[in-house]
Design a protein around this nucleic acid. Structure first.
Length: 209
DNA sequence: CACCAGGAATGTA
DNA sequence: TACATTCATGGT
């Protein structure tokens, strides 16, 4: 029994699933592009879209910026919402190209970088934080629908507000990039297995936590 | 056939 | 602030 519920939950998830290694050995550009494409979309469909971009030689933010939007649409079609996601990709690629890409943007502190990302149309809190964590390596906790449901079901908070839940994680965990990286991935992994349409809790590593 | 996935923008009250 | 609607493909 630990006094820190969040660490207890993490330990049980990690014990069951081990490392998820999200976005390993891929370019940062691909992570940013994937973060947009995965908005409310199954990851298997994102992989098809990314593969199309690679085959077309335009799986980079600079390439996206200089490629006509109709070609972008055609390539990312499998990921769904291609009409708006193509615009979103254009928006963020413009941001990176016009601001010196990772080289210069990495000099900004995390809060400043986050607020700049949130100004881009198509980048909400979860996408911004995913980019900060997985592409920039900043210790920012990503809150998604699964995370909210986990917090509410275990009665750890009353509010389901994004910032409230994010603060809860960041204030009760060591600010460790690898920990935040794995934790978010483990929550998704566990939710997919046990919390689909009908919550089947039998066998869940968080049973009784 | 229905449901929804590693959300965000927009509109309504 | 708190919900509701729209966007689109592909797997179960």
């Amino acid at each position: 029994m630990q006094k820190n519920k969040l660490l207890e939950i993490y330990d049980k998830l990690f014990e069951r699933y081990s490392y998820q290694h999200w976005w390993p050995a891929v370019t940062k550009d691909e992570i940013v592009i994937g973060a947009i494409l995965t908005q409310n979309t199954a990851w298997s469909n994102v992989e098809k879209a990314v593969e199309n971009l690679k085959n077309s030689g335009i799986c980079s933010l600079e390439a996206v910026f200089y490629t006509d939007i109709d070609s972008i649409k055609e390539n990312i079609k499998p990921a769904g919402f291609f009409n708006q996601k193509s615009v979103y990709l254009k928006n963020i690629s413009e941001f990176f190209v016009k601001n010196g890409s990772f080289n210069k943007l990495s000099r900004l502190d995390t809060n400043r970088l986050r607020s700049e990302l949130l100004k881009i149309k198509g980048i909400g809190k979860e996408t911004a934080d995913s980019i900060l964590l997985y592409a920039f390596g900043r210790a920012v906790f990503v809150v998604d629908a699964y995370t909210k449901r986990l917090i509410l079901r275990h009665n750890l908070l009353k509010s389901n507000d994004y910032d409230t839940i994010q603060d809860f994680f960041e204030d009760n965990l060591p600010k460790d990039v690898e920990l935040f990286n794995e934790y978010h991935a483990l929550i998704v992994k566990n939710a997919k297995e046990f919390c689909r349409t009908k919550p089947k809790c039998s066998g869940c590593p968080l049973e009784g936590v």
